[in-house]
Write a protein that binds this DNA or RNA. Structure first.
Length: 271
DNA sequence: CAACGGACCTGCCTGC
DNA sequence: TGCAGGCAGGTCCGTT
């Protein structure tokens, strides 16, 4: 699933095609996603013009004059622009049929994604209200991570994956950023210096920016919004590379499960 | 409040 | 070949 680079790549991919377009109707084939798709979504959205496609954390925000559609791709979701008459597949759960014959189609085999509607400011929505800063914002800095980590005994990996601390760092890029920063993923978050958090913040920004630049990492079922496969994960330095030599020191890379998530690191480079 | 495990759901791969 | 079991990119929620 989409980590932040895939979500941002999707946003950039669909924005030129949907911005300024009117929604003809919404077709919901399977409302049972992470939360139920609102029953009255069609009534809310029909004839509304999509004024902007924005992103907050891994949520895509399709703004209209009347409200905002909030879309999360979960673990396995993808959004594609298709011909509205094209036969939907088994996991094509929601279509936004647009003026002009195209549809924005949500596919999500695992159904962990979400499609929600809010009339108010989306940043005040319960799911978005408590989110931490965007890592790619100019003012994101290690000083923030250092401040919020004081007194925390949980691992630094779980800290940077906690959306209240910083958003958009998923399981793949958490391992990648910690490798680049030379920080052991299991180290207690509260016992890392400001200088090392500054290095980590820069590593997070760099790894996310590079992945967006490359069009998003593809593992299993992600494909770009237009359907062609994305950039494959050859640029990943540790994720999925258990036992293979570290690109820096040749030491075999380790894998373990931390907080129920696979974690990869170099036992020699990361302290 | 912090930390952890469970939950949601399906597909794919491995090994017996 | 068939099937059970484990694994997968997220993140909210309830329990300690």
């Amino acid at each position: 699933m989409p980590e932040l680079p895939e979500v941002e790549t999707t946003r950039r991919g669909i924005a030129p095609y949907v911005t300024g377009k009117a929604v003809r109707r919404v077709v919901v084939r399977r409302p049972k996603l992470r939360w139920p798709v609102p029953a009255r979504l069609n009534a809310s959205l029909a004839s509304q013009v999509i004024e902007a496609v924005e992103r907050r954390a891994k949520y895509l925000l399709l703004r209209t004059a009347r409200g905002t559609l909030i879309v999360h791709l979960g673990m396995s979701g993808s959004l594609r622009l298709v011909d509205a008459r094209r036969q939907p597949g088994r996991h094509d759960h929601v279509d936004l049929v647009l003026a002009g014959g195209k549809a924005l189609r949500l596919r999500d085999p695992r159904c962990f994604g979400a499609v929600l509607w809010t009339r108010g400011a989306p940043e005040e929505h319960a799911l978005l209200r408590h989110l931490g800063p965007e890592p790619l914002a100019d003012d994101f800095a290690g000083d923030h991570l250092h401040a919020v980590s004081r007194g925390r005994r949980a691992s630094v990996k779980s800290l940077i994956m906690n959306g209240r601390m910083v958003v958009g760092v998923g399981n793949i890029y958490a391992s990648e950023a910690l490798f680049r920063a030379g920080i052991h993923p299991a180290r207690a978050a509260g016992r890392i210096s400001l200088a090392r958090y500054r290095t980590l913040a820069t590593a997070i920004q760099e790894v996310l920016a590079e992945a967006i630049e490359a069009g998003g990492t593809t593992l299993r079922d992600y494909a770009r919004e237009t359907g062609e496969p994305g950039w494959f994960s050859t640029a990943l330095r540790v994720y999925g590379r258990e036992g293979r030599p570290c690109v820096t020191c040749n030491h075999p890379l380790s894998r373990d499960v931390h907080a129920q998530r696979a974690t990869y690191w170099c036992g020699r480079c990361q302290r």
